[in-house]
Design a protein around this nucleic acid. Structure first.
Lengths: 203, 203
DNA sequence: CGATAACCGGAGAGCCACCCCGGTTAGCAA
DNA sequence: TTGCTAACCGGGGTGGCTCTCCGGTTATCG
């Protein structure tokens, strides 16, 4: 699958630098947000900036590498929810997980998902996005088939929503609750039976 | 109130340059989004970059100046809705207006509202934000008192929501619907009686 | 028609992303 | 062990950005 299959396993020094850069990037992104200075990351890692750019041609690819593991964990979590909860509960719990993760990661998930603006031509690998979209899609489909959420939503919508909220509430430390409030509001809006009435979709 | 009260009405050449910069900025922001190059704006306006920075000390202040008029129009529109529609309908219609405006402005409203991350110390004038928040607050309060929306929402939340959606859906031309879908979903979530009836948003 | 305060913008300092290319070194084979 | 070679490294250059300083220019008013 992975096109990264090296015909030769990468030289030892190269791998060492690769790891160093990854570690430095993780730190820097945590400290200064998703658009920390790449040059600074290289400096922190103790390598030349050219080395960084060779290993990670774009900021995006670096973000992708840094967060790959955690995104995987998040997807595992989705499967876990699916196993242990009902369709709607699983979906909504997971959305809260995603929200919490996005908030804790200084909007990095948001940056990961949302970008794509500057990379029209490159066909960059969207591994993280694809993984999360797939996870969301499964939960959503299950809830929809069970009739517990309104039809017509797309999995991407949910990601856009959570990304958007974490993007927008980032920085406003004082009002960290707002994101949660808004997510709850949106979730209530996607349920089929938000109140005790029979469904009537007049529109 | 306005500290801009000039003890002397600004020299003619100064005002001319000010206007030129404003026009160039409007164009550039429309073309390249909210963080277009300031230097480029100065170039387009035919002035030195120093002149731009003298008139507008921060990117934010330039955005503020460019959008002041339209924000005022939006607030006027809010009052209009309040006069001609019921509490909930007025609020939701206006949110759709806001959403449409934000989408059309390449996320500039979003940028205006959401920023503040880099300007911790400056106490910059938030004129636009204040105006919009006030407008939203009135509509919200009215709808809440009428019992047509769930209590506990803040006016800022609504702005954050719309800003966030326009931020996140920007660039995804193919899926321009997503913002609308999500806004509808959130609106449904904030009604007191989501199943009761549908409103027609003339748009 | 000066005097003068307001204003202008070229030039420069200090960032940044990204790339070129000569020097270095790991890894393999003899 | 030794030597060869492809893989790898990073200093330094390019070009773009934001923002500031300061000597020259000009609108404005007495």
């Amino acid at each position: 699958m992975a096109g990264t299959a090296a015909r030769r396993p990468m030289r030892a020094d190269a791998r060492r630098n690769y790891e160093r850069i990854l570690a430095a990037a993780e730190q820097s992104f945590a400290d200064h947000g998703a658009n920390a200075s790449l040059e600074g990351i290289a400096r922190r890692a103790g390598v030349g900036s050219a080395t960084l750019h060779r290993h990670f041609p774009s900021r995006r690819s670096l973000l992708e590498a840094v967060f790959h593991d955690r995104v995987e964990a998040l997807c595992a979590r989705a499967r876990e929810h699916a196993r242990s909860s009902g369709p709607a509960a699983a979906l909504f719990s997971w959305l809260h997980d995603l929200n919490a993760y996005a908030a804790a990661s200084h909007g990095l998930v948001a940056s990961l998902l949302h970008d794509g603006r500057d990379a029209d031509l490159l066909e960059q690998n969207d591994d993280c996005k694809k993984m999360i979209t797939a996870a969301a899609g499964e939960l959503l489909q299950r809830a929809e088939q069970a009739g517990e959420v309104r039809p017509g939503m797309h999995a991407e919508d949910l990601l856009v929503l959570v990304s958007a909220l974490s993007l927008a509430t980032e920085g406003h430390e004082g009002d960290a609750q707002a994101g949660r409030r808004l997510l709850d509001m949106a979730i209530r809006g996607m349920r089929s039976h938000p109140c005790e009435r029979t469904t009537d979709f007049g529109s």
